[in-house]
Nucleic acid binder design. Sequence first.
DNA 1: TGGACCTGTGTGAGCGTTAACATCTGAGTG
DNA 2: CACTCAGATGTTAACGCTCACACAGGTCCA
Lengths: 340, 340
Amino acid sequence: MSTDTGARPPAMSDVALAAGVSHQTVSRVLNGHPSVRPETRLRVQDAIARLGYRRNSAARALVTRRSDTLGVVTPASALYGPTSTLVAFEEAAREAGWYVSVATMRRFTADSMRAAVEHFLDHGVDALVVIAPTSEVASAVQGLDVPVPVVLISSAIELREREGVLSVGVDQRLGARLATRHLLARGHTRVLHVAGPQDWFDAQDRLAGWREECEAAGVTAPKPVVAGWSADSGYEVGRKLAAGKLPEAIFAANDQLALGLEHAFWDAGVRVGQDVAIVGFDDEVGAAHYLPPLTTVRQDFVRLGSLAIDVLRQALGGLTGREAPRLVPPEIVVRRSSGV
Amino acid sequence: MSTDTGARPPAMSDVALAAGVSHQTVSRVLNGHPSVRPETRLRVQDAIARLGYRRNSAARALVTRRSDTLGVVTPASALYGPTSTLVAFEEAAREAGWYVSVATMRRFTADSMRAAVEHFLDHGVDALVVIAPTSEVASAVQGLDVPVPVVLISSAIELREREGVLSVGVDQRLGARLATRHLLARGHTRVLHVAGPQDWFDAQDRLAGWREECEAAGVTAPKPVVAGWSADSGYEVGRKLAAGKLPEAIFAANDQLALGLEHAFWDAGVRVGQDVAIVGFDDEVGAAHYLPPLTTVRQDFVRLGSLAIDVLRQALGGLTGREAPRLVPPEIVVRRSSGV
DNA sequence: TGGACCTGTGTGAGCGTTAACATCTGAGTG
DNA sequence: CACTCAGATGTTAACGCTCACACAGGTCCA
């Protein structure tokens, strides 16, 4: 030990030696154990600082089988929703003392999912978090039998129903209702919905919310147009709409679709906000500067992140029973695209 | 051992027992050691599969002091650049057999940086990757003395110069030159630059590239307008420009700025693409549907990610000498905003 | 035919931590 | 004043793996 000249980082025993106590006492100090004399504690802390000691987390994980790390599985896309969710969640996790390990997935196949999960389990994560926007995930998560809690971040209607699956999400349905309500309140009696890809939970929920609100208002919901998420897709839909009978009002499943619609209408000489009202969903960066600025629905990802952590804490505290899903309410942001 | 009924996961010794070999032989099989008889290897692999054995990575990390994990420090923003970089890098890392642990930072102070780095070192990451868009990082990274390689993902002119700092990035300067060249080639002799915040390397480099290209073409670069990154900021600049003498051509430091400019000009009745040409930077999702569709510069983040991994591999292979920075060339995407 | 040298395998000692138990001290109680 | 009991500390044994070494048996060449 005396011959080691700085080669390996100091271990607990080195601290113990320097402080004139046993390594166990050092451990107690580190873990905040109550029965350590204040004076001893001080001596140990001093030695720790002096030696620049840092606890070896591998050794710790080996014996405790915990790692203070959460595994996050998320789709490999730079799309607004998943990305914002990831960033917000990481922030919340870190604040709660967890570290986050990420696995992005190009596709949520059962295989790739299993691989990611196994990796995380190998590395002893305390829990798994799945950012689960599509129904592909449903099957992938379903087969999962893991010894740690799993939290879904997703609006996932279907999964919500299943017992034992923890989940949090933004209330997409409510958001869609707010959007639709806004248009109806402006006097439009026919609100068309340009829907997102129906294997996405968000898209399903927004469609459902729109329909609900129409029914609640006593108007018949026209047949929705199902599209993708992209502005390209919205543009294409817009062209067709402009060529035929123009709807008075459109609720687009996301801002990109709305952007594409605006583009198509512009090309066709249709004035958005006057000839047709449009509401989007997401309040993406820049939506305030679309032409015209887009009325849309904003989701609170920060709150979503901390909600996920709350649920996780509960699950790890042992309360794993069937949890009610927790939903964050979104809010509408009114701009010119829905009428002046 | 016989009394353990599934309580703890199988260990290497369990596999050894089941296969009738020593734990060391199991280890050899796992690590692909050559001198194991094929028959023995098969027997071991069979036992592994049968027991559902999975190697405990904490124990492994304890003795090897490696964890097959990379630590990524990244700004906590949903901005296009950092986000795309993160996603692309994770993908590349995973493909190369590494796992990625993430720490987002709201601000790159020396303190928060140190905390993140310490955490990663605690957890035995093999290397550190810093997505370093601002010069705040410069100081934060500077003081860093870590026992593992550090790779900067950044265009960071200044850092590039320093020896021993590994870095990769997109060639922002080239991108700016391409954008400026495009405008000059269209006959504009005065290209205004609406610059991004100058504590961002990308903004600095784009400014520098623009200036270089102007000089190379023998035109005088007008005084640049320094703004933020946001569309709001672009809008504000646009209003002022529209109120005064309108420039013929504008190179905006990113697409959001360009979007804001388009908005302001629209409000003022200035026709973008005719009265004024605009080029952006990023090719954000949706840029093809701005009004008018935006000519812009696209960055290849996928290539950036794999480049970072390449550099990392080299550094870990021991070749830590002063590395030339590696730059990914961007490309220009021409649309209507720069003239029909 | 003997030793030098490979190949395949086993043995034992850590790695740095926590958990369980053992020990020692001094204060409080009847 | 012996007796219990809580508080403070030390001792020992895992945790599951890799590494360094030992060792058996075979091959090869002098």
